[in-house]
Design a protein around this nucleic acid. Structure first.
Lengths: 199, 199
DNA sequence: GGCGCTCCTGGTCAAGTGTCCAAGTCCGGC
DNA sequence: GCCGGACTTGGACACTTGACCAGGAGCGCC
């Protein structure tokens, strides 16, 4: 089947994501990826200069995709009051983790891999940049709806909520106990109420 | 140099930790570890049945050691009021991360590695078990000193603080901005004040 | 002294790894 | 028609990896 190099790259990235999600980054060899994409191995180094280039693209794609996924979930929640909005947002994210554990495990693997590899250095930074900025926007929008403002810099509040949810997700992956994790979400949402005041 | 198999295992585990901390889990091959321990490669499979057995011991050792490190740091903090104690504890942990970033990156790598490998399944669980239980004890002790009790189950509060700190650590490793991270710690300590009441 | 167990060593093996390449196929433009 | 560049392919390469083993060395105990 004949197609452009760019199209090949997209297919290989998609195949790589499937393999990495299913078997982990360590087992995602060039052969496994090419095989998943149903292509001969030779195409790999025609489409990509190196495996690192593929990994870099994978990380970028994953970050964009899960941001979109989560946005959609968060925005589909009830908006009675700020507490409900915040708890809904946290819950939406956590639901996504519970529904796609391997996908989130993959993001942790990619982050650590990027932090170890100088050539992927900025990949990790960009990954979190996406999340922080997006989270910040959501927080500002929510506060605006209810005529509130934050008592702390929004960037700090954004980083706080992102940290809780990111840490809790990893914690749940390793430890389990979904009910208790959801209690933590409720606790966090209530805590967030202490970080706003009427405008 | 003649020594018992158990002694060899300890030396190899220590060497493995050095290699993994410096170069990452992926680059910690049996050869690199044996070389770091200044032993011929042959000893490896005399001391250990497999590499997994070594990794399992490494994870166990790391968890115990960093628990001890952090306990010592936390307990050496001022104890004027509960807020200072909690903030001191969070700060002590975060200081440890800033001082030994590679060590903490390693714990994330080990966690993800364990979650991918069915044979290391319980390694990840045990890792978090250490932290959760220890954290819980510290919280109970602190509340006790000031005649307070928690408004939520202690296990949930413990998991909340652990999640914040764990998520923030990973976040800082990837993104940086230490000052902002410390603001998150302050925010968290203040939030924790809303989870206690006089007894 | 010699038996038996533990410890030590260098080399070797099969499997897998990322990378590369020569030769071939396709197809649009001259 | 055919030329040139983009795409395709199977096979090869140099290297690394975890695992294994035969044979030797040390040492306590009868």
């Amino acid at each position: 089947m004949r197609m452009s190099a760019e199209e090949r790259r997209d297919l290989l990235v998609a195949a790589a994501i499937r393999v990495m999600t299913r078997d982990g980054v360590a087992r995602a060899t060039t052969r496994a990826i090419a095989s998943e994409a149903e292509m001969p191995l030779g195409v790999f180094h025609y489409a990509f200069h190196s495996k690192q280039e593929l990994v870099s693209r994978v990380a970028e794609t994953i970050a964009q995709r899960s941001k979109a996924d989560i946005d959609a979930a968060v925005l589909s929640r009830p908006t009675d009051d700020l507490f409900q909005v915040v708890l809904g947002g946290l819950t939406a994210y956590f639901d996504h983790v519970v529904d796609h554990p391997d996908e989130h495990l993959l993001t942790y693997e990619l982050t650590t891999a990027a932090l170890r590899d100088p050539e992927l250095e900025d990949v990790a930074r960009r990954q979190y940049d996406y999340y922080l900025k997006e989270n910040e926007q959501l927080l500002l929008a929510a506060a605006d709806v209810f005529g509130l403002q934050f008592t702390e810099p929004v960037s700090v509040v954004s980083r706080y909520t992102l940290s809780v949810v990111d840490g809790l997700a990893l914690n749940w992956l390793a430890w389990g106990d979904e009910d208790q994790a959801r209690q933590v979400l409720a606790l966090t949402a209530r805590a967030a109420m202490g970080m706003v005041r009427p405008r």
